[in-house]
Structure formats: structure tokens, C-alpha cells
């Protein structure tokens, strides 16, 4: 009986990570955060490179935390969580990318855009 109870209590943690896993995730995240921070305030790199680097660091940290903290890729099969996650990423990319594309295009093409920009800068209404 005791054995069964402990199996019940362990069940939720079966897919969770180990201490080493959490530690690795933590340290890697720390390194990425702090390097992104110092690269930004030091201004030693060109701006374009910095923009790319910050994005790369953020995305790597995103995946590191998904792996070590959320254990996303350790799902037991069938991997429905992963499937939902991938679908979500697709939707987010479509949504954010599409919105930015549409809105940039609007700003570029709307003949009023310069006036709107001007009035915005004046802080007044149309």
C-alpha cells in the first residue's frame, strides 16, 4: 500500500528534471542575460551586430528555459505539448510578423502618414 501511495505522489514529478538540470539552465541563463546586458551598455560593437546578438541570446535563453525548466522536450510520447507549442510559435510568428508587415506598409503607403507623424509630434489630435 505504501509503495502505491508513493507512486501516486511521485507521478507528477516523473517528467521533471534533476538538480543538475536546473543548475545548468540557471547558469546558462545567467551568462546569456549578463552578457547581453554588458554588450549593450559598453557600446563596443556595431549597432546592427548588437541587435542580432541580443536576439540570438534571447532566443537561446528561451530554448534553454524550455528545456531545463519547462522540460518541454522530455514529454512522453505522443508529444502533444510539443505539438501545441510548435503550433503556437507558428501563430505568433504569423501574427507578429504579419502585423508588423501590414503596419509598416500602411505607414509607408498612406499619403497622410507624414502629416500624422507631424501631428503626433505636436502632441495634438487630428
Amino acid at each position: 500500500m505504501n509503495k502505491m501511495i508513493s507512486r501516486v505522489y511521485n507521478a507528477p514529478t516523473k517528467a521533471e528534471g534533476t538538480f543538475n538540470g536546473y543548475l545548468i539552465g540557471f547558469i546558462l541563463s545567467l551568462i546569456l542575460t549578463i552578457s547581453a546586458y554588458f554588450l549593450t551598455i559598453k557600446h563596443s560593437l556595431s549597432r546592427n551586430l548588437l541587435v542580432v546578438l541580443i536576439a540570438v541570446f534571447a532566443i537561446s535563453q528561451f530554448f534553454i528555459q524550455l528545456i531545463f525548466f519547462l522540460h518541454l522536450f522530455k514529454d512522453s510520447k505522443p508529444r502533444y505539448r510539443l505539438l501545441v507549442f510548435v503550433f503556437m510559435i507558428c501563430i505568433v510568428l504569423i501574427l507578429v510578423g504579419g502585423s508588423l508587415w501590414i503596419m509598416t506598409n500602411l505607414n509607408y503607403d498612406t499619403s497622410l502618414s507624414h502629416e500624422i507623424q507631424y501631428m503626433n509630434n505636436q502632441g495634438g489630435g487630428l
Partner: peptide, 18 residues
């Protein structure tokens, strides 16, 4: 989404249809 003060009403149209 206000007119003026840096709002963008087209963003509303974009989001609501998304």
C-alpha cells in the same frame, strides 16, 4: 488607438481582425 498622441487606430483594425 487614439487620433494623435502617438496612437494608431489602424492597429486596432489589424488586431481585431486577426
Amino acid at each position: 488607438f487614439t487620433a494623435g498622441h502617438g496612437g494608431n487606430m489602424m492597429m486596432y483594425v489589424n488586431l481585431i481582425w486577426a
